[in-house]
């Protein structure tokens, strides 16, 4: 219950850059995500702000390669 709201709230970050990119991602893609992708999103949202931003701007790669599908969507958002 309320998974969308929870995810939306966890997109509230300390970096404005992330607030904006995550909001775009949520508006565009969240509803279409599969169970596995929702899991990946949760893992990405648990990262610290700077790690996540580095991955979105392709400065850093995720250690866990299974995160790529959702990360690609974030990078394009």
């Amino acid at each position: 219950m309320k998974e969308l709201e929870r995810a939306r709230w966890r997109c509230r970050r300390g970096l404005l850059e992330l607030d904006i990119v995550l909001q775009r991602f949520m508006d565009k893609h969240y509803q279409q995500l599969s169970e596995t992708e929702l899991q990946q999103l949760a893992t990405l949202l648990d990262l610290s702000d700077n790690d996540l931003w580095d991955m979105i701007t392709t400065r850093k790669e995720p250690e866990d390669a299974s995160l790529w599908p959702v990360l690609r969507l974030l990078q394009a958002a």
Binding site: R10, R13, G14, D49, N50
Partner: peptide
């Protein structure tokens, strides 16, 4: 905190 502590704005 409204958000996880290390996501506070100080991080910026």
């Amino acid at each position: 905190s409204k958000v996880f502590p290390t996501r506070s704005h100080t991080v910026a």
